[in-house]
Simulated scan of single mutants.
Amino acid sequence: MTRDAAKWRTWAALLPVAWLVGAGVPHAQAVPAAPVVEPVVVSQTAHDPEAFTQGFEIDGGVLYEGTGLAGASQLRELDPQTGAVRRAVDVPGGYFAEGITVVGDRVWQLTYRDGVAVEWDRATLTPRREVAVDGEGWGLCYDGGRLIRSDGTSRLRFHDPGDMTEIGGVDVSRDGRPVGGLNELECVDGQVWANVWPTDTIVRIDPASGAVDLVVDASGLWQRGIPAEAQVLNGIAHVEGAEFLVTGKYWPTTFRVRLG
């Protein structure tokens, strides 16, 4: 499998459901529309244009990146100031890797359709174990108490950070309508930011209700030197306050932006 063909089929299969729910069912009470903003670019750094970015997270002065594709997936440490790759290790088993998140001295990394999550030792970047996960893995973040996983649908799934046991979940909606294609995630101050595949949209989600309370239209980033052959926006790493690093699959640039 190359690029995002399999994900496209999964996402496209959900469209009729989303359209029917949103367009054909009257709502007893109007839902206020989530505001839409554009990112404000603060600065930019280099990003490996060969990286099929699946996960992005800053912790302890290190920018961690997970890359995908079967047989080519890696877990990487980057310099957040320059984008330079400090260390890179191959994901075991030839898995098609997906989202990542840091939990203490560990890093969890999802796989797409292999049915496992890989737990890494953060200091040595060596695998500790593999744990079974039901369903597809797309994005992953840690809110300080639980792992939150996306699987390409409109549902966020909650997991125990110790062993990946599923402990709950919530369905995500924007203006009362399901939001499918939830992809790379970032947990910040009790909220979840998510790339919406295969678009240039980022949404901010209240994980208690599943409601989207902010929408980011990042389509303008393509005009800043992103080649047409690059793939979708995918990668959100919180820096501080309202500032984030964002990038995409095969993007040559990482942007530091203000959101909200």
Rank of each mutant, 00 (worst) to 15 (best):
R3D: 15
D4I: 08
A5L: 12
A6H: 12
A6V: 11
R9C: 00
T10S: 09
W11Q: 13
A13G: 15
L14E: 14
P16A: 03
W19K: 13
L20M: 09
G22N: 11
A23Q: 15
A23W: 13
A23C: 12
G24Q: 14
G24P: 00
G24H: 14
P26L: 03
Q29S: 11
V31C: 10
V31N: 11
P32G: 11
P32E: 12
A33G: 02
V36N: 05
V36C: 05
T45S: 14
T45N: 13
H47V: 03
H47I: 01
T53V: 07
Q54Y: 06
F56Q: 05
E57F: 01
I58C: 13
G60P: 05
G60L: 05
G66M: 03
G68Y: 07
L69C: 00
L69V: 14
A72H: 14
A72I: 00
Q74D: 12
R76M: 11
E77W: 02
D79W: 01
D79V: 01
Q81D: 14
T82G: 10
G83M: 03
V85E: 15
R86N: 11
R86I: 12
R87Y: 05
D90N: 13
V91H: 03
G94D: 13
F96Y: 15
F96P: 08
F96C: 06
F96K: 11
G99M: 04
I100H: 04
I100A: 05
T101S: 13
V103L: 10
V107A: 01
Q109D: 04
D114Q: 14
D114Y: 02
W120M: 10
R122Y: 04
A123M: 04
L125I: 07
P127H: 05
R128A: 09
R129Q: 15
E130Q: 15
A132C: 00
G135A: 09
C141W: 04
G145N: 14
G145F: 02
R146P: 02
L147W: 06
I148S: 09
S150Q: 10
R155I: 05
R155M: 09
R155T: 15
H159D: 02
G162H: 13
I167L: 07
G169V: 08
V170P: 08
V172F: 08
R174I: 01
G176M: 04
G176P: 04
P178M: 07
P178T: 05
G181Q: 08
L182K: 06
N183F: 03
V188S: 06
G190S: 09
A194D: 06
V196D: 06
P198N: 14
D200V: 02
D200F: 00
D200T: 11
D200P: 01
T201M: 14
R204M: 09
I205V: 15
D206G: 05
P207D: 10
P207I: 04
A208K: 14
D213C: 07
D213K: 09
V216E: 06
A218D: 12
S219V: 06
S219W: 05
L221V: 12
R224F: 01
I226A: 12
P227E: 13
E229M: 01
V232G: 08
L233W: 03
G235M: 05
G235R: 02
I236V: 13
I236G: 09
A237C: 10
H238F: 08
H238Y: 08
E240T: 15
G241L: 10
G241Q: 12
A242F: 00
F244W: 13
L245W: 14
W251Q: 12
T253I: 13
T253C: 03
T254P: 02
F255G: 03
L259S: 07
G260A: 14
